[in-house]
C-alpha cells in the first residue's frame, strides 16, 4: 500500500487517504482479503493524527471498500465491480448536471459543450500515445 500526503493541497488529509486507498483497491493493487496497516501504524509512519486515519478507515468502511474485524484489523472487502461502475456513472451524471447548470448560467450552447467534449477526448488520445518524442 502506498499513501502520499500533500500538506499543501488543501484537501483534508483523511480524504487524501480515502481516495488513494480506494484507487488502489479499484486498480487491483490491493487485493480482496488483504490486510491494511493498523490505524495507529499508518498514523505513526505518516506522522499524522490517529483521529485522521480512523476517520479515513471509517469512511472506507462505510463505502464498502474495507471491513474491520475486532482485534484482527481492517481488510480489503470483496469488490463488486458492477457496483463501482454504477457509482462512477452516478458521479459522472452529477458532474454533467453541474456542467449544464453552469453552461446555462453562462449562456453557452450545448453545441459548444459537445465540441469541448470532443476536443478534450482528442487531447486525451494524442496525450496517451504522445511518446514519439516530438512536440508541435
Amino acid at each position: 500500500m502506498k499513501v502520499i500526503i500533500n500538506n499543501a493541497s488543501g484537501v483534508p488529509i483523511y480524504e487524501q487517504i480515502v481516495l488513494q486507498i480506494k484507487n488502489q483497491i479499484i486498480a487491483g493493487e490491493l487485493k480482496e482479503g488483504e490486510i491494511l496497516p493498523s490505524m495507529r501504524l499508518l498514523a505513526k509512519e505518516q506522522r499524522i493524527s490517529v483521529i485522521t486515519t480512523k476517520r479515513a478507515y471509517e469512511e472506507l468502511e462505510r463505502e464498502g471498500f474495507i471491513y474491520s474485524v475486532v482485534g484482527k484489523g481492517s481488510f480489503v472487502a470483496p469488490q463488486n465491480i458492477e457496483l463501482i461502475r454504477e457509482q462512477h456513472l452516478r458521479e459522472i451524471e452529477e458532474k454533467m448536471r453541474e456542467i449544464f447548470d453552469l453552461a446555462e448560467t453562462a449562456g453557452i450552447e450545448s453545441e459548444e459543450l459537445r465540441e469541448m467534449l470532443y476536443l478534450i477526448e482528442e487531447e486525451k488520445k494524442t496525450g496517451d500515445k504522445g511518446n514519439d518524442g516530438f512536440c508541435d
Binding site: P12, I13, Y14, R47, S49, V50, I51, T52
Partner: peptide, 22 residues
C-alpha cells in the same frame, strides 16, 4: 501541530477551545 490528536487552548485561566486538531 505535528503529533497531537487534540488541542486544548488555554488563555488567562480559561479554555478557549478543546477540539480535534484537524
Amino acid at each position: 501541530e505535528k503529533i497531537c490528536d487534540y488541542i486544548t487552548f488555554l488563555n488567562n485561566g480559561s479554555i478557549i477551545m478543546s477540539e480535534a486538531k484537524d
